[in-house]
C-alpha cells in the first residue's frame, strides 16, 4: 500500500544525492546520533525526576520547562536527519521490520510526550513521587528506548 510512496522517496533527487555521495550518509547519521544523545539526556532528566531519581529536589515543571527547548531542537534535528537518511534507502526500510517497529514506537512516544506526560509535567502540582508520576516516567523511558533500539536494529536484521 505504502510501497509506491517509499519508492518515490528513494527515487527523489534528495535520496539519489545522498545515495550517490560517499560521505553524506555517514555524516547525516552522525548528526542523527548526536541529536539522539541530547534527546536522550533531556528525556532522561525529566523521567528520572518522575521516578524520584536524579535532580529530585527540583520541581518536575521547572526541569521540564528548562530542558524543553533542547528537547524540541533535538527532535527537530532527528526528524530532519532521519528523513534524509530514510529518503536514501526508503525501499530497504519498507522491508525492514526494525524500521516499522521504530516508527510505531516513535509515533507512540511523541503522542505520549505531548499528551499524558505533558499534562503531568506541565501542572506544577504535587505529582512528586506519586504512583502515576512513576508510571508516566517509566512509560516514556520505555517508549523512547523502543525508538532507539528499533533504530539501531534497522542496520542489523
Amino acid at each position: 500500500m505504502l510501497l509506491p510512496y517509499f519508492e518515490w522517496c528513494e527515487n527523489s533527487a534528495l535520496g539519489a544525492t545522498i545515495r550517490d555521495s560517499l560521505w553524506l550518509f555517514p555524516v547525516i547519521e552522525s548528526f542523527h546520533l548526536v541529536a539522539m544523545a541530547v534527546l536522550g539526556g533531556t528525556v532522561l532528566l525529566v523521567d528520572m525526576r518522575l521516578l524520584g531519581l536524579g535532580l529530585s529536589r527540583r520541581s518536575v515543571a521547572t526541569l521540564a520547562r528548562d530542558v524543553q527547548p533542547f528537547f524540541v531542537a533535538a527532535v527537530a534535528v532527528m526528524l530532519v536527519s532521519g528523513l534524509l537518511l530514510f529518503s536514501s534507502e526508503a525501499v530497504k526500510c519498507y522491508y525492514s521490520a526494525a524500521f516499522w517497529v521504530k516508527m510505531t514506537f516513535l509515533a507512540a512516544a511523541i503522542t505520549f510526550t505531548y499528551s499524558a506526560r505533558r499534562r503531568l509535567v506541565g501542572a506544577d502540582g504535587e505529582c512528586r513521587d506519586s504512583l502515576y508520576g512513576r508510571f508516566v516516567g517509566l512509560t516514556s523511558l520505555l517508549l523512547w528506548f523502543g525508538v532507539g533500539a528499533g533504530g539501531r536494529w534497522i542496520g542489523f536484521s
Partner: peptide, 30 residues
C-alpha cells in the same frame, strides 16, 4: 487505551514485515 492500540499496531507491523534485509552501515557510502 493508547497502549493497547500501540500493541495491536506493533503486532500488525511485525506480521507485515516481509523479507529481512541487512546492512551494518549504508550500502551507498561504500
Amino acid at each position: 487505551m493508547r497502549i493497547v492500540a500501540t500493541a495491536i499496531l506493533l503486532g500488525v507491523m511485525l506480521t507485515l514485515s516481509v523479507r529481512p534485509v541487512a546492512a551494518h552501515h549504508a550500502f551507498a557510502a561504500e
